[in-house]
Design a protein around this nucleic acid. Structure first.
Length: 124
DNA sequence: AACCTGACGAAGA
DNA sequence: TTCTTCGCCAGGT
C-alpha cells in the first residue's frame, strides 16, 4: 500500500477521526473508504503506518468484537479500557461502542481525497 | 507472469 | 461457540 494511494489516504483520514472511546472494525473502515473487501489492507496500514501518522490504532478491531492477535494486542486492550471501552470476556460490544459516522460527516472528511479504484465489484 | 502475504470476514462444521 | 476453510485485494518478490 503506497502512502499516496487514495485508499491509503482515505483509510488514514477515517481512522484518525475515530473518537476516543469508540471503535470501528477493519471491514467498516474499508467500507467507509468506499473500498469494501479491502479490510486486510486496513490492517496492513495500521501495522505499517500507525506510528508515522499517529493513528489511534487501538480503536480498530475485528468484526467479532475482539482485538486481533498481534504483537501489541495486550497494549491495545489496556488502551481501550483506559478509554472506557468495556470488554465482556475480552470482547467489545459493537452495538454499544461502534462508531457510525453520518454520511455527511464522512463525506466532508474525505472530500479532498479521491476514491480508490478497486476491481472489487460493489452494489449501488 | 506466478506465487506469496496479511493486526480481515463470512459461512460451515 | 470455537476452529477451519476459503475468498478478498493491492503489493512485493
Amino acid at each position: 500500500m503506497k502512502d499516496k494511494s487514495p485508499l491509503f489516504k482515505r483509510v488514514v483520514a477515517i481512522i484518525s477521526a475515530i473518537p476516543k472511546g469508540k471503535v470501528v472494525t477493519y471491514g467498516q473502515v474499508s467500507q467507509m473508504a468506499a473500498a469494501p473487501g479491502c479490510a486486510r489492507h486496513v490492517s496492513y496500514i495500521l501495522s505499517s503506518s500507525s506510528k508515522k501518522y499517529k493513528l489511534p490504532w487501538h480503536r480498530v478491531i475485528n468484526s467479532s468484537g475482539k482485538v486481533s492477535g498481534h504483537q501489541n494486542s495486550q497494549r491495545q486492550i489496556s488502551l481501550l479500557e483506559k478509554e472506557g471501552v468495556a470488554f465482556e470476556i475480552a470482547k467489545i460490544d459493537l452495538d454499544e461502542y461502534a462508531w457510525i459516522p453520518k454520511k455527511a460527516e464522512l463525506k466532508k472528511l474525505l472530500k479532498n481525497i479521491p476514491e480508490h479504484i478497486s476491481v472489487f465489484k460493489r452494489e449501488e
